[in-house]
């Protein structure tokens, strides 16, 4: 069966992105089965970054379709700029007779129309209207659409690799989910986190790193927090610590520059209160419970 493996592109990760085996599996399944890959996960776990690195790893150009609450599915295919045409007609500018001048392809349309195979990232699909995913289903399935105004059919010359990210803000329709390969990015465990940090802050003092991670995972275990700090906040925090030249034993007694970890005022207050009341911080990983014993 191994000879079959060469028939499709394979993703294995890149220098700048640390991917878990499950993720590699999901990406490759999605490419081999020609299904969109739906990626969910906590904010800051690198969903958008993943797409960029899949493109990089495969050596393909990427097109990004960033979804907002007002995004309509149609806009991803093409937009017929009626107002421009009206305006041109009114003032006698442009080639008003040719309707095609006023048909502008959206991200999906562009990826279909181009000769090169692309990675298409549909970013934060859950931001749009509840019905939005269903509206792009047919086009993603068949890889073609018709421009109603002209009757032209746009067919994908090279099937793009479609990655879709969701922040879990809205439930996605079942019909949509059924067609996707699904991957949930788990929050990295301390081991993987060390590797991630190493990419951003190479040659970090190991003692400092351990103290930093201990504080960070301890914070994440606090159920009272409304917003748990994520990877990007951890990396920012380390940057701040490094720039201030703080030593590992200073971190042992407190959590300096808390503001770069906790973005919610109530959370910051709660933690200050905890400190004032003499709450203790963990001293070793075993203080965080059995999950962190290693």
């Amino acid at each position: 069966m191994n000879d079959l493996n060469d028939e499709f592109l394979r993703f294995t990760g890149t220098e700048g992105y640390i991917a878990s085996p499950a993720l590699v599996e999901a990406v490759n399944a999605s490419i081999a089965l020609e299904r969109p890959l739906l990626i969910k996960g906590e904010p800051g776990t690198g969903k958008t970054l993943l797409a960029r690195h899949v493109a990089e790893g495969l050596g393909l150009p990427m097109e990004q379709w960033h979804i907002k609450s007002t995004t309509k599915a149609q806009a991803g295919l093409y937009v017929y700029d009626t107002v421009q045409r009206l305006n041109d007609a009114r003032f006698g500018e442009g080639d008003v007779a040719d309707i095609r001048t006023y048909i502008k392809h959206g991200p999906l349309g562009r990826v279909f129309a181009t000769e090169n195979r692309h990675v298409l990232l549909i970013d934060e699909v859950d931001k749009a209207d509840l019905e939005f995913p269903n509206d792009i289903l047919r086009e993603l399935d068949e890889m073609r659409f018709t421009v109603t105004e002209t009757g032209d059919e746009v067919v994908a010359q090279q099937r793009p690799i479609v990655l879709i990210t969701s922040n879990n803000e809205k439930e996605l329709p079942d019909a949509f989910l059924r067609r996707c390969v699904f991957h949930f990015i788990e929050f990295p465990d301390p081991q993987l986190m060390k590797q991630i940090i190493d990419v951003h802050h190479p040659h970090l003092d190991t003692e400092l790193l351990d103290q930093v991670l201990l504080r960070f995972y301890w914070l994440r275990e606090q159920r009272e927090l409304r917003k748990k700090p994520s990877t990007s906040e951890l990396i920012d925090w380390i940057s701040v610590l490094l720039r201030s030249g703080i030593s590992p034993d200073q971190i042992e007694q407190q959590i300096p520059f808390l503001g770069s970890l906790l973005k919610n005022e109530q959370d910051t207050e709660a933690l200050q209160l905890y400190g004032e009341r003499g709450g203790s911080y963990p001293e070793s990983w075993s203080d965080l419970g059995p999950r962190y014993n290693n």
Partner: peptide, 15 residues
């Protein structure tokens, strides 16, 4: 240990 024969890094100690 995170090294692939082709020099590609893979993460996760759980593999």
């Amino acid at each position: 240990g995170g090294e692939h024969p082709t020099g590609i890094r893979v993460g996760g100690q759980s593999r």
